[in-house]
Each structure stands twice: as C-alpha cells, then as structure tokens.
Design a protein around this nucleic acid. Structure first.
Lengths: 219, 219
DNA sequence: GTCTATACAGCGATAGAC
DNA sequence: GTCTATCGCTGTATAGAC
C-alpha cells in the first residue's frame, strides 16, 4: 500500500511480490485450518522464507488477519459487482452468488469469514469488527436481489426480504461448515441448490448434485 | 467409566466428581473459543487445580475432545428422545428441536459440533469421525420428522426429505455461526423461526424476534 | 487424586548484520 | 528485504512425591 516494490534486475525475483504471496498462503491456511490453526512458521516453510521476513511485511498476526479480511471483502464485493453488471434476473444473480461459494468449496476451502466467525471470541477487536462488515455487506446485497425478485414476481416468497437474506446467508455458511466434516463439496452444492430451488418459482434450476462436474474450480 | 469414585468423608469434596467438572468447563471453552482456542491451563485456572491433575483424568487433549463429543452426542440424543416422547406433531417436534439450539445460543455458546466442524482439518482422526456421526444422527432424526410431516400433510414441501433435512441442519448451524459475529442470540432465533415458518404450512408460528423474552435459558 | 517440578516443542515477536 | 539468532511465553505432556 505504501511502496511500489519495483524490483531491481538482479534481485531474488520472488514471484511478483512477497507481500501478496504471504497473503495468498495465509488466506488458504485460515480457510482450511482457522486463524488459531496456523502459525507464521507454516507460512514461512511453504514460501521458503523465515518468520522474521514475514514480520517485516506484517508486523503482527493481528495485522495480517486484518489485511486478510479486508482483501477478501474487497474481492467479494468486486465479484458481486461483476454479477450485477453481467446478469439482471434475480434468480440468475443468486445462482452466480452461490457459484462464488461453490468455487471456494471446490477449492477445498471454507469461506474465510465463516471460518473466522467460529473463532470470533478469540480474535482481535479489529478483526471482529471487519467480520461484521463482511456479513453486513452480503446481507445488503442479498436483500437487494430478493427485493428485486419480489417486485418482478420471480420469487415464491413474499415478506421480509431482509430476514430471508439472513436465512440464505446462514444456510450457505452452515452448508459449507457441515460439508467440511464430510470432506465433500457436493454436499454443499446439493444444499445450495435446494435453497435456490426453494426460493425461485421454477421447479429446480439444476440437478448437479450426485451427477457430475458442472463448472470449474476457482481461487 | 471405570471407577465409582466413592469419596471418603474427609476428602476435598470436589463438587460431585472432578472428571465431570473438567468436562463441563472444557465443553464451555470449546463452544465459545474452539478446540484450538483453549488450553489445559484455562481449565486448571478455572477449577483451581493443576494441569497435571487434568492429565490424570484425560491423558491427552485428544482424549478429552473425544469424550466431549461422545457426551454431547449422547445428551443430544437423549433430548431428542424426550421430544419424541412428549410431542407427536411434526411441526411441534421441529420447534422443540430448534429450541435445543436456541438454548445453546442463549447460554452464550455455539453448537459444540458446529464449532468443531470449522476446525475439522486440525482435529485428531477420532474426533473427526465422531463429528460425522453427530451430524448423521441429526440428519436421520430430522429426516424422520420431515417424512412424518409429509405423510400427515403438515409440511408445505413435497420431495426429498433427506436433502431438506440437510438444508435445515445447515441453516441452523450457519445461523448460529453468523449470529456469533454479532453477539446476538436473537439473530439466531429470528432466522430459525423463518426456517420453521417456511417449512410449516401455517403462516408464522411465532413473532418472538425483536419483541421480547420468550423462554428461559438453558445449559 | 492432587501436587511440584520439569521437559521440550512451538508460538509471536524483536535485534541487528547483510 | 531477508537473514541468523534469540527472547519470553505458552502449549501439551510426564515423573515422582504425597
């Protein structure tokens, strides 16, 4: 955020920025093992650097955690903006939204903020606040889509879209949570499809669960 | 499990068994902070004993964790048996089922197995297996209630009760997960009521959310 | 069954050379 | 920006006295 890190020609040439590589590794570790389930030593070992180097980029673990949530939140908002730009139908927007989480699952991970929510009590105050902001943003976007769907008559439910948005968000996070215990991403997809079908009027948008591939994995 | 611990008259007289007291404390710590978020030192400090004493009762943390899940699972099954014995209507059974989780939330905790599910990758193999068994048992019970409700015409949905059971379980676990980030048990209750109302034909069984108390907290 | 004492690995973090 | 070296603390676990 403060320096450009224009690397000199003869330098070690770490793949386009150590700071980002640290974030990438740390993000995966949090999503798979939790904030209390990984250490600086884990990141250092994987990247082939020392713990001291990590502290140069992120002075404390709390700082690293803060940046992780901020980046994840920003990336998620960007993905939602893409959805809003590319599709107009509420049901299709929701399918794309579910697709984001499905990509995370297929990548053998859990939602970063869902994972951190479990550890909420043990987190630094800054991270706790950012966690709420992520869920708030999701809730707001979902509520907007649901309201749009109610107006256009695309959805089979009538009242309290904000409550419904919270239920949908919780259902998706919970489906990821439970699916992890079975190490089976299809379990998430099946539950997510049921939630979608239950919301939209048409019988069932998909029958992916149990059948086959569907779409490719993502970061 | 092996000895009766008949305490002699002049003994320190720890409240009806140190082993159980350890489990009680450990259970609360796991439900609030996670398996990786507490230590033997935390339990020892709270109970006023030493860490060495804890290791006498539970040789390793993995062993302690195993017993915790087994006890929690057994207690949950017992609660479900009470529900089956006391009420017959499927909708009422589901309300009672939700009431179990609501009691956990009001007690400032998260479902033990929901919490452990997040940390799944970092757990000993034995605990991982027991975790699946807990969710399987919940799924089976819920599926039975849903099938009963479909036959009696109490439920507004028609097909795939097992899938629906998974969705309901996930929705409840996820609602707890997200609600913790807001430190607000009412958030769980509101979502749970929406799930119930969405399932049962009658308009809305409750309007607790946002209004007031409702029922008393539980262990 | 509980204690004191301790082993030993791991943790987050820092100092200072290069 | 990365390294070596190390600090202080906490983690799980054990030995042996009482």
């Amino acid at each position: 955020m403060m320096k450009a890190t224009r690397r000199p020609p003869g330098a070690p040439a770490r793949a386009a920025g150590t700071s980002e590589a640290i974030l990438d590794t740390a993000e995966r570790l949090v999503q798979t093992r939790g904030y209390n389930g990984f250490s600086y030593a884990d990141i250092a070992a994987e990247l082939g650097v020392t713990k001291a180097s990590l502290h140069y980029h992120y002075a404390s673990k709390a700082e690293l955690g803060r940046v992780l949530i901020e980046r994840y939140h920003a990336a998620f908002m960007a993905a939602l903006a893409v959805i809003d730009a590319e599709v107009a139908a509420p049901c299709e927007k929701l399918e794309r939204y579910v697709g984001l989480y499905d990509g995370v699952m297929r990548n053998d991970r859990m939602c970063l903020c869902g994972m951190l929510a479990a550890e909420h009590r043990t987190l630094p105050a800054t991270m706790q606040a950012l966690l709420q902001q992520f869920f708030d943003a999701n809730e707001i976007w979902l509520t907007g889509v649901l309201e749009q769907g109610v107006r256009s008559g695309a959805f089979a439910f009538g009242e309290r879209p904000r409550e419904r948005a919270r239920v949908v968000l919780g259902a998706l996070e919970g489906a990821m949570l439970v699916a992890r215990s079975y190490e089976d991403p299809r379990r998430f997809r099946a539950a997510a499809d049921y939630v979608l079908a239950d919301l939209c009027k048409r019988s069932a948008p998909v029958a992916r669960a149990g059948s086959g591939r569907g779409r490719r994995a993502r970061g």
